[in-house]
Design a protein around this nucleic acid. Sequence first.
DNA 1: ATTACTATAGCTCGAGTAG
DNA 2: TCTACTCGAGCTATAGTAA
Lengths: 236, 236
Amino acid sequence: MSPRRGAPDPKTMSTLLELVRMGAAYSSADVSSGSLGRALGLTQQAASHRLIELEGAGLISRIHSGRSLKVRMTPRGLGEVRSFYGELTEAFEKTRVRLVFSGSVFSGMGKGKYYVGHPEYQRRFTEALGYRPYPGTLNVKLEEDRYVEQLRTLRSLGGIRVEGFKRGGEEFSALTCFDGRLSDERVTLLFIDITHYNESVAELISAAYLRGKLGLKDGDRVTFTIDAASLVPAKG
Amino acid sequence: MSPRRGAPDPKTMSTLLELVRMGAAYSSADVSSGSLGRALGLTQQAASHRLIELEGAGLISRIHSGRSLKVRMTPRGLGEVRSFYGELTEAFEKTRVRLVFSGSVFSGMGKGKYYVGHPEYQRRFTEALGYRPYPGTLNVKLEEDRYVEQLRTLRSLGGIRVEGFKRGGEEFSALTCFDGRLSDERVTLLFIDITHYNESVAELISAAYLRGKLGLKDGDRVTFTIDAASLVPAKG
DNA sequence: ATTACTATAGCTCGAGTAG
DNA sequence: TCTACTCGAGCTATAGTAA
């Protein structure tokens, strides 16, 4: 999109992308200048003009077939689109967010210990995160609205997904994980699909027993950072 | 990109994407109109103008900080970019390619039978493809250049990957599979990483003995179709 | 219904320049 | 240096129309 490395201008690229949507990438597609114009928000005439320009640039081939037009992308046109997509994907996946949160520690209902300590969760966390979490969660109440809002933002981003499961008639919820740091400890923030807390509570796990290691007690204020993988919204 | 659902025009979107690359997505970034112009292939003046327009449209916020400018995207601007990216991703991943090939059957060197019949390959194919292939390949020589070129195109796309292995000092090559149809039979085209044939030969496997079932003999012309998963180049 | 030409209107960009 | 104004040039879309 951006004309680094002699890439085509936005106008050209948006037209090529629309042609991809119309199925002209690998085989000829019936593309009328009218339909292309409608999709692009242009008049039929302007769309026709663009197609002629694209052909002139060697990015597509146009074949008149009766009253209609068959369009297919040339290898070069396909290459342009693919490299645009590749660069964009890379840009989106390289974009990392570091969000800072602050709140106060409070005691949960002991559920954290029970759940995180469950052998199956332990197995799944170890596989997903690369470490075996201490059986328990550190609950942090976010008092300021801006942190609560940040938490909402974070939730919509792509994190590490851990699927739920059933054992002995009991249901264990799926959750999404985001890595971060609290002091010098690596922590993981959990978004548990079915949680007992409201959206102003952050539930953290870590390899170590954080309360002990950092000398934390209820009401203490802690600050932690969370890194989100990308700009890409979470799937599903 | 395409203005379906009142999305911004290409010019706006390309500018927003460049701002994402500059790190203005989640926090303020120092963006000079000069540097933005350079990245977009515009002059400083035009870039400045665009930033002002984007602010007017409520997509970014501009804050003068000394001689420089701090830019960050608003939730709405971020939403536009993310929905553009989402639509694009979907379009690319939904785009399926159906390529038609035609060529003539010829006898191989018996290697196909040996390899595909190998118990470990049989196991791996069954897992990867969902059926147990008949031990042997149907070799099709593609005479026309356009088919050879199509085959090259196909190779660069994402297929089902089967890893190689070693057994008894012998090396068995990794390969990439693409599903398709020959007459009413489901077939799978193999791109064997280390093959004995040149790039004008398609090697097909199937659950059935195709030569027998379809009454094929050397020199017979066959037509088959291959479906590729997406426009996205194969990773790795 | 198509495509696509010509001519005009309108918009975007770039040069010059000020703050 | 930086931003961002005005104004004119050039480009692009549109309207009208032909095939």
